[in-house]
Structures are given as structure tokens and as C-alpha cells.
Amino acid sequence: MKMKTALISVVLGLLFWFGLNGRLETGVLISGIVVVAIAAAFHVKDAVFGDVKFSPRAFIAFIAWLVVFVGELIKSNIDVMLRVISPKVRINPAIVEVKTKLKTPLGRLALANSITLTPGTLTTDIKGDSLFIHWIDASSTDVEGATKAIVAKFEKQLEVVFG
């Protein structure tokens, strides 16, 4: 659990370090490893990434989630832009409740963020395993219908990665 958090923190930290430096040199690499190791040591005890699963299946699921996510992000922007420029503002908003099967905090964070960036939905609150979502064009206000329409497309992949 702690090893996993340390490993992921160091890899992410080094990627950031090289992104900010923009060049690959031995001196940069050594100072980067030292800085990243110190930074990672500070939050190893929280085991933030302890729930992430390492397996080929999780990796494929992550890529699949990324593809779905980018597609939905573009779709959501076209959707919102059409609403904004249409002469009569077409909205039918509601706050609906949906249920999630994800158990881990990191998984729920990823789900809530994905929902916020997809067409017409905005996560307003999380209580237990219910998410309350402001939906700009609510087609169904009951729990099952809303869950199917909003959560289902992301949950399948996130379940494999975060459990």
C-alpha cells in the first residue's frame, strides 16, 4: 500500500519535474530525484494512491476511460455552446440523485470530476454512495434512470482502475 503510493508519487513527480524543466540532463535528473523523493516522503503515510490497481486490465480500462472522457468533453462543449447561442435558452434543469458502486475516495473523485465535465451535468454534493447532480436537461428525475444516463458510461472503467 505504502510502496504503491511512494512509487506513483515519485513517477508523477518526475514527470512534472521534466515537464517544468524541459530538458533531459544528468544534473537535472539527480536533483529531480532528490526533490521528488523528499516531497513523496511527506505524504506516503496517507496512502492516497493505495487504491489504484496495477494490472494490464486496469491500464486498458484507464485508456478506455480517457477516450470516453475526451469524447464526452468535446460533446459537452458543443452541447453547451448550442444552448448558449440558440435564440431561446432551452433548459430543463433539476438536481437528481444517482447511486455509485465505487467504494474508494479516489474513484469517487474521478467519477465526480468526469460527471462535471460531461454534457449538462454538475456534481453538487456527495453523501455516502449517492451523488447529487445538477442536470441542465433532466430527462428522468428518478434514481435508476438518472444513474443509467449519467454514471454508467464511466463507472465500468473506473471500477477496474480504482475498485
Partner: peptide, 16 residues
């Protein structure tokens, strides 16, 4: 018309 719908346009469009 209201705050929630404004956040909707604000978040998504600025991200993309």
C-alpha cells in the same frame, strides 16, 4: 437564468 446553469457553461467551456 440561475447560478447553477451559469456554472455549467463556465466550467465546461473554459476547460476545453
Amino acid at each position: 437564468p440561475d447560478l447553477y446553469n451559469r456554472i455549467q457553461t463556465g466550467t465546461k467551456a473554459t476547460t476545453l
